[in-house]
Amino acid sequence: MNRLVTVAEMTLRELARRRGVLLLLLLMPLTFWLIRRDSYVGQSVRALLLGISWAVSTAALFATSAARELEPRLRLTGYRPHHLYLGRMLGLWGLGLAISVPFFLLTVVDANNLRYGGIAVAMLCCVAVAAPFGMLIGALLPRELEGTLLLLTVVAMQMLLDPADAGAKLTPFWSSREIATWAVDHTDDGYLTRGSLHGLVVTVLLIVTVAGVFAVRLRRRRHLHHVPIA
C-alpha cells in the first residue's frame, strides 16, 4: 500500500510542479466552455466535459511517457507492475478531481435549472476514463507527439459523432455526454443509467488493458534467473 501511495504522491508532485501544464489544463476546459457559452447551455456543458477529458488524458499521456525510463529501474528496486500503474492512476485521478471542482462550481454559478448531481457524475466519468485512457496511449506509443495526435483524433471524433449513432458508443467519453444530456435536458433516467454503465465498463476495460500492457512491458524476462543468496 505504501508503494502505491508513494507513486501516487510523486505523480502529483511532478504534475504540481509543471505550472505551465497545470495552467493549460485549466485553460483548456475553460476555453471549450467559453466558446460554447453564448449558444446553448447544453453545448457549453458538453464542451466543458470534453475539455476536462482531453486535459486529464493529456496529463496522463505525458506522465506515462515521462516515467518510461524510470519504471524499469523502480521495478528492480522491488515495485510490482501494479504498484506503478495503479499508483500513477491514483495520482492522475486526484489531479482530475482537483481540476473538475472549479468547473463544477462554474456550472453551478453560471447555469440554472440543471441537475447538478448529473453534472458531477459526468465529470467523475470523464476523470475516471481519461486517466487510464491517456496512460494506455502513453504506454503503447513511445513518442509523445504520436500519442497527442491520437488523443486529438479521439476527441475530435467524440465531438463530431452524433451521440445517438451506434458507433458513438465505442468512443471512450460517450458516457459523460449521455449523462450531461440527462442533467441539462432533463431527459428520462435511462440516459443516466446508460451513461453511468458505459463509464464504468469503459473504465474497467481500460484499467485491465493498462494492467496487461504494463505487465508485459515490465515483465520478468525468461532468460534471467534469480537465485537467493545462500
Binding site: 504534475l15 509543471r18 515521462a66 524510470l70 524499469p72 528492480l76 534471467l224 537467493p228
Partner: peptide, 19 residues
C-alpha cells in the same frame, strides 16, 4: 543470465524524474 541476490542498475542516461 543467473543472478544471485539483489540487482541494481544505473542507466547511461535517463532513469530520473525531471520534476
Amino acid at each position: 543470465v543467473t543472478v544471485s541476490g539483489r540487482l541494481g542498475y544505473c542507466p547511461q542516461q535517463g532513469g530520473t524524474a525531471d520534476f
